[in-house]
Amino acid sequence: MSALLHVDAVTVDYGGFKALDGFSLDLAQGETRVVIGPNGAGKSTLCDTIIGRVRPTHGAIRFMGEDISRLSEPAIVARGICRKFQAPGVLPSLTVQDNMALAARTDRRWWKALSHGIPAAERAFVAETLDRVGLAARAGTPAGELSHGEKQWLEIGMVLATRAQVILLDEPTAGMGPAETRATAELVRELGTSRTVLVIDHDMSFVEQLEAPVTVMHQGRLLASGTLDEVRADREVAAVYLGHTA
């Protein structure tokens, strides 16, 4: 298996503090990977670096062989990488449908936006994606009026609607109850059949339900990787987590 996304010895140095410290990670096409680690381990910085919000001090991010670590944010999205943020990043004054249509648009140049409605070619896709995240009935509601869980699903849907091959989900179950978490796990497992997914989460019951390989980060470095049971049995992992919860 050749890597679709290759994080190559990336260091992000915030004036002496290394949020990522020579971190490497390979994501194969169609793989679902979970990244866990205590607070400050560098999980969100990893996402920030992949999508171009933060530039690596050393190292490179390669997508299909191309170094994307110096590209603009929209250019990285155009290559096929999109991220769901930790705090839901839906657009509150737009309706659920407009949020989805915004993400689904294939031509994002400003003069192509000078007409009304959703382009005919994208209408079915928007409806289908709304349906996929269970929000078809809420299409006309302003996104700001959705429940927290619904906002998370809407944003997952928007990330999907960009047709990204690689999807980064930053704490998709933050603020969800057990039933919503189960539904989200179901959704992410289903995504894993067609896309490459990188999930960051704290919630161990959610991570269990994903049944995916796990990478553990600590202080910007790789601590362990393997199945969830393997990393759970790892002494270093236990020490890091116990050290933080004690």
Binding site: P74, V77, C82, F85, G89, L91, L102, A103, R108, T162
Partner: peptide, 8 residues
Amino acid sequence: NRVRFLGY
């Protein structure tokens, strides 16, 4: 930011 990271 959301708009930028949707590719606009």
